[in-house]
Design a protein around this nucleic acid. Sequence first.
DNA 1: TTCGATTAGTAAAACATTTTACCTGACCGA
DNA 2: TCGGTCAGGTAAAATGTTTTACTAATCGAA
Lengths: 345, 345
Amino acid sequence: MSKSRANIRDVAKQSGVSLTTVSLVLNNNDQRISEATRQRVLAAMRDLDYTPSRLARGLPNRRANTLAVLVPALQHAFADVYFGEIISGIYEEAASRGYRILLEVARREYVRRKEYLTLLEDCSVDGILFIGATEEHRWLSEFDSSDKPFIIVNNRFEQWDLHYVICDYPQAGRTAADYLVSRGHQRIGHICGPSSMVLTSQELTDGFVNRLSEHGVPMGDRMIVEGQYHSDTGKLAADELLKRDPDITAIFASNDKMALGACQALRASGRIPGEDIAVLGCDDIPTAALADPPLTTIRMNFFEVGSAATSHLLDMVEGRNGQAMVQQRVPVLLVERDSCTTLPS
Amino acid sequence: MSKSRANIRDVAKQSGVSLTTVSLVLNNNDQRISEATRQRVLAAMRDLDYTPSRLARGLPNRRANTLAVLVPALQHAFADVYFGEIISGIYEEAASRGYRILLEVARREYVRRKEYLTLLEDCSVDGILFIGATEEHRWLSEFDSSDKPFIIVNNRFEQWDLHYVICDYPQAGRTAADYLVSRGHQRIGHICGPSSMVLTSQELTDGFVNRLSEHGVPMGDRMIVEGQYHSDTGKLAADELLKRDPDITAIFASNDKMALGACQALRASGRIPGEDIAVLGCDDIPTAALADPPLTTIRMNFFEVGSAATSHLLDMVEGRNGQAMVQQRVPVLLVERDSCTTLPS
DNA sequence: TTCGATTAGTAAAACATTTTACCTGACCGA
DNA sequence: TCGGTCAGGTAAAATGTTTTACTAATCGAA
């Protein structure tokens, strides 16, 4: 037994064919090899316990078969609701197409030294996905209209021409408005997300408010209270809404955590969510289904966002894309449970 | 301007030296190059905008300069409290030693096909860190006493001989016991973590209970209630403890979320945490400091766990370790705030 | 002056693949 | 029999580094 790993040459020798033949068998995109030879080669591979070196494979065609996932250096970057889902989506699609994913944290130093560029230049990565981008990531302008394989996951920017895949937040807002209005609600409160942060929160609220006014249910700023995406801020926001108008019949929260917080506040105020007042959430986190009452919500398919972004990125990498700009919105889905069963009297 | 990236040969030509010289300058561990030459080479590199190819660099010595981080395929793998911290620690140490990190999700299929081994064999990775390992990961036996560069992060296993770095949970338990006893507490309740899961929860509780009994404060099972690590289960557990003994003067919870939940329950029962009853947490999550009252807790240094594990792993990879088994415990630290100011009357 | 050591550098092999261009023999129709 | 096509395969170049073993020049000491 040789001390080190078998290589393609060993396989060739063992099966009595040339290097090239083994390589062709390996990337079986080529029909030039007869079945008999192919089998001989495969047998030799099994015999020698051969695994092709990814490193060496990448060299000739300058491919790393790897994508980078860039996450911002947040305090609890990964504690975010959807990170897991998005990364799972990315991982799944990447793996199914034979790619690995490299994790990079976009810390200040990292960005200052433009290491994200090095990443592409030194061939350690074929493309980059950026999750958790916010307005403050000015260096994104570097990718403006460039043809580098780079894509924004679940956000978008109006000032730069970047590829992105994002949940259809405006549609989510409109769906919420349609649903509540169709059930007869006219006095509606809204808990919006942190306006300063990302566009998504703004899109959702705009979609909601605009559609409401199309339905003839105009909603002033008075019935919109801002939360910070946690359940406690949802609670506070609901209390505030009740103070401003004790007779509202429905609350739409920008995410499920805040919706669940609102439910608590409502209960504390003597109203039973779902019976006395409708509560509509957004995201469809796992606990939404388990809550009491089970939360009616708008499902955001973060997994799909991740996998779609990856799929597009790989199309760019493999040059199947033409020059088309990728700016895709992933559809949302109303999930009816029990927190909106009430009809206003 | 040449169409493709500059390579080491271009740099050599431009600066009028040999390939070797450029390479030596690149890995400036060698003093054989005169300052003048070095400067000429560096200038040429800048000129040509040269970045060495990581792929090619790895080939000759079969190094990928990359580590894999294996995370289990949990529903919300990344939503866990400490994932972010651990990964940041890993990332930081790896980056400072010139390594990248590859993210791999240990899904069922992945494990079944033993892809974690392929990872090492095809040279795409020099070592593996596994976060979130639990008893059910039987395939870990594969690494039992093997000399593969593999390390468990923040867990350990008695049945297999594996390298690991873990927070010092027993010490955390003892610290808690010492602290509470030193402040005169005799009637103490404990909210432990889910016993079935990982060893860590067990270690913490054992350390706590054993040290208490060394102090002459034996604690039967009666004053231990199990929680599931979320704040609501902490609330429920605290209620249960109060029911079992309304006169307890202190509660030690296995994590901060449950401690904060317990505070809520105590307040609801008319007791002010920190004044009427002491509450001690564990972990030191960011909200612990912001809570009312600020939570006294035992700080778990997850970042350090990640970076220490990585440091050891890299020592193995680079062969500086001898054959020594790595089984390190990272010290914990009592952080005094205001939730334990009360002294029992 | 010659011997060794030191300094500064180089040529060439090694790493493990892909890819391009070429070769050989068989077969077939004219 | 000649020319052409085709199937099945191969040799060799290319990818971009590191590393080992060697050389040429210089310098000090015997």
